[in-house]
Design a binder for these strands. Structure first.
Length: 287
DNA sequence: CCACAGGTGTGTC
DNA sequence: GACACACCTGTG
């Protein structure tokens, strides 16, 4: 019998957590459970109502690794009360009831969000999968499929950009990925240091990496460094905010500023609820 | 075949 | 600092 850990949580839905655009290495299996690859480990998650079963781990590892990864120490009930400032947020939070912001690994998050620029979730997931298959460590085989971890900076630093383009279909982002990995491998940018920086300083540091602009830096800060005040503005968030809050066209930079003003310290959570709600309902799109 | 989606980098004013 | 435009691939 495979080892597992059981938790019961009101605000936790695998579907919401994985399809809200923050993570790319998950898959729904035949029985409706989810397979997640993270931290060079494979986890299988099964949810029945508010009961969540984490297969392939035990209490000690769960406490050490997965508890923080799934943000178990946060009181989502209290967070939701703080964010219930208007009917828009209430609707968005009801729709994305089970969203949690994951605490993912910095290097993997940096690379996957470099790939995310000017792309879409399906394509990003394919690219990341191919990169792991080719350069990552073999972990285990699940339902006949081999699972690989995400490679480290030293490994990706030695890859030929052209190879990445051919195998992983990353397009012109090939050199961004390799050059960013090289800067990190050389210690020019140190992902660990960013944990201790304030938001602006951390953002500036990340933006030294090629392919990392305002939006990607904000995503990395939110999804890897758990900076909940970060407010990434992509095309969806811009549309949702313009349609629901501003009722006019607003420049990206201003949307980010206003988002932080409206939602304060929990702007990142508001952002995720609104993104998920807006994108699923195709809000603000013409025709 | 063509249109469209999607952030960043670069070049121009 | 504001803008236009190129960049690559998948999908409709």
């Amino acid at each position: 019998m495979e080892q597992f850990v059981h938790r019961r949580e009101e605000f936790f839905q695998l579907r919401d957590i994985f399809s809200c655009g923050q993570a790319f290495r998950w898959k729904v299996l035949n029985d409706g459970s989810y397979r997640l690859i993270a931290k060079n480990r494979v986890l299988r998650l099964l949810q029945k109502g508010q009961d969540i079963y984490f297969y392939g781990t035990e209490e000690e590892e769960f406490a050490q690794i997965w508890s923080d990864y799934f943000d178990f120490s946060r009181d989502y009930s209290a967070l939701r009360k703080q964010l219930a400032i208007d009917s828009i947020m209430c609707d968005a939070m009801e729709y994305g009831r089970g969203i949690r912001i994951l605490q993912q690994e910095p290097f993997e998050t940096i690379i996957t969000f470099i790939l995310s620029a000017n792309s879409n979730i399906g394509r990003i997931m394919n690219s990341v999968e191919e990169i792991a298959k080719r350069y990552g460590r073999y972990l285990t085989t699940l339902e006949g499929e081999a699972c690989f971890g995400f490679p480290d900076a030293h490994t990706l630093a030695q890859v030929q950009p052209q190879e990445l383009r051919e195998f992983a279909k990353v397009g012109y982002r090939d050199r961004y990925v390799v050059e960013a990995a090289q800067m990190i491998a050389r210690g020019e940018v140190c992902p660990e240091d960013i944990y201790t920086m304030d938001l602006d300083r951390g953002k500036k540091e990340l933006m030294r990496l090629p392919g990392v602009g305002e939006k990607v830096a904000d995503c990395i800060l939110l999804f890897a460094y758990h900076r909940r005040e970060s407010f990434p503005v992509d095309v969806w968030i811009a549309r949702v905010m313009e349609e629901l809050y501003f009722h006019r066209k607003v420049p990206r930079k201003k949307v980010a500023e206003l988002g932080r003003e409206i939602f304060g310290d929990n702007a990142g959570f508001a952002n995720q609820y609104l993104f998920y709600y807006g994108r699923e309902h195709q809000l603000g799109k013409e025709s």
